[in-house]
Design a binder for these strands. Structure first.
Lengths: 221, 221
DNA sequence: CACCTTTTGTTGTAAATGCAACAGACTTGT
DNA sequence: ACAAGTCTGTTGCATTTACAACAAAAGGTG
């Protein structure tokens, strides 16, 4: 396998937390890991497909997004290195994917066989059970993050949405200055507002001394 | 225990799916089940608390909601009979609750000890492992529903939000006519719009022949 | 029935938003 | 260095929304 080069990433993921390098390599073959390489802009999956594997991002960045009939785009979620995505579609009656998954940069994904992940196997994988628990924790965390995003979206004005989102980012980075993984258009799609109106509001907030920014770098004051 | 009267509900829950009545009763004591009775309007939990149990609703209806500094209310989610809530807070590093949980009607909740739920015990609970898997499936489903709600919230206009929500309800009930579990104010809080503006829009849509409604009953045309 | 409370619908106005169009800054590739 | 393309900020305008205040309808209680 050519997955060894990602071992450094894998051992830091939530999924394999508490599991040693050697065991991870063993589990990768037990879970029938397959590598998927993607160029920026490639679709990893499209809405309507059925997932039979659990994908894990080991390089790059992905967007979970949806385009409606009129071409309006919503970015539901941003997936970073080490994160799973599509874990919620392992359940047998979960139906097809509701959203597209697109590579926001050149990316590498490792796919694990869905059935083998949830079915604790009888052979040597001593740590399989731990993986199942980690998986549960990861779905739980995504759950909490989705609720947090709902918190942003529930804000009525563009300004409130921005403050809500930037506050969260600041907390996440434990610093008043931080970089966000989205450009203006993407941030607008993420918060479900008009880009120009948002740009306008950002500048107003800067002029009022609430924050400063430069490209993707922000600082709250 | 006085939990026998809820056995009919419990055996239909996702959590205990595939598990017989006798086993359920056994597990309830193994999981240190405790009953919690609530009057309409009571707070089950408040944002900031730490959960040490997994609550399961067996009677009534709950709202997961949040009031901001200015008194604006957002209803994040509606919990019906048989559903878990707060499952995402079992994980050890999950921090405090972000939202309030309030009884929308007189309700009864059964609390299961969080540690005992995820730690498959050594004694007689043969079905414990199955419960862990069911738990995972249930969090997954909630996850997918949250994404669906994000889909409603991402709509730009009140009308689009209404159509998005009502379409989902129609699909869920597999019928063009159905009842929703929210009154006007609650629906507005759920979709994060102004009640009067929403009321207005609903009437316009009715006048245009898109739908009819009477109190909580809707029919799409 | 009369009274009170809750829920729902209606209207007007100020404010915020979406949209379109454009200009300047910055990138990228040749 | 140039051209083409992308990203960001700016402006004006029509539409939509939030907010407040009120009217009408429905429900509950003595």
């Amino acid at each position: 396998m050519k997955l060894k080069k990602y071992l450094n990433v894998l051992k830091r993921t939530k999924l394999f937390s508490g599991i040693g390098e050697d065991e991870i390599l063993g589990m990768l073959s037990c879970l029938q890991a397959k590598k998927l390489e993607l160029k920026k802009g490639d679709y990893v999956y499209r809405a309507g497909e059925h997932l039979s594997c659990v994908p894990l991002l080991v390089e790059g960045r992905l967007h979970i997004q949806k385009d409606d009939f009129w071409g309006n785009r919503s970015i539901i979620n941003v997936i970073g290195v080490g994160e799973l995505f599509g874990e919620s579609y392992i359940a047998p009656d979960s139906g097809p994917l509701l959203n597209d998954v697109v590579a926001a940069e050149d990316s590498v994904v490792i796919c694990l066989d869905a059935n083998r992940v949830i079915t604790t196997c009888s052979n040597a994988c001593r740590f399989h059970q731990m993986v199942v628990q980690n998986l549960f924790y990861e779905v739980s965390e995504r759950n909490r993050r989705l609720v947090q995003k709902l918190g942003h979206m529930a804000q009525r004005t563009t300004r409130e949405k921005l403050i809500s989102y930037l506050s969260e980012q600041s907390q996440k980075h434990k610093s008043a200055s931080f970089e966000i993984p989205l450009n203006r258009q993407q941030l607008a799609d993420f918060l479900s507002v008009d880009r120009s109106a948002m740009s306008n509001e950002l500048c107003k907030m800067r002029d009022e001394g609430l924050l400063t920014f430069n490209k993707n770098s922000f600082e709250l004051l």
